[in-house]
Amino acid sequence: MNINLTLIGQSITFALFVWFCMKYIWPPVMGALEARRKEIADGLAAAERGQHEQELAEKRAVEHIKDAKGQASDIITQAQKRASEIVEEAKGDAKTEADRIVTGANAEIEQETNRAREQLRQEVVTLAIAGAEKVLKREVDKDAHASTLNDLATQL
């Protein structure tokens, strides 16, 4: 229980231990703790950011799908419209063509009729002339009564 030099020795020992602890133990451990705390905080922040970004991406994806759907239905509508237009056009064309053909045919028929009629007329004229020639062979000069005969032929 004697108080002696041990007192001073202990004080010095204590001071040295505190100095060593302050210099070589406390800073690196606290540094590591602080760095880890920061790393964890950063990681959490990054995770939150990632989640937020994912949510945004999902929203964007939904919008994209909606847009695509709209565009697709637009395209389909346009295509249907175009198809019916094409059909209508084709119908119109066909009708015009048919009309043209019919008209052409009618014209041709008329032409043929006219030609046949003309031919018939000529033949009738020729026949009539032939008949008349035969009748009038003697008294009517073919050249002198040609105009009269032609008049007659047109009236037929």
């Binding site: 002696n4 030099l5 041990t6 202990q10 020992t13």
Partner: peptide, 22 residues
């Protein structure tokens, strides 16, 4: 011996344990 003495056992164990801790 008075003040001019030192407790060898106290010093030995305190320094040993302190050194162990450090």
């Amino acid at each position: 011996m008075g003040f001019m003495a030192i407790h060898v056992d106290t010093m030995f164990f305190s320094i040993l344990l302190g050194a162990l801790f450090l």
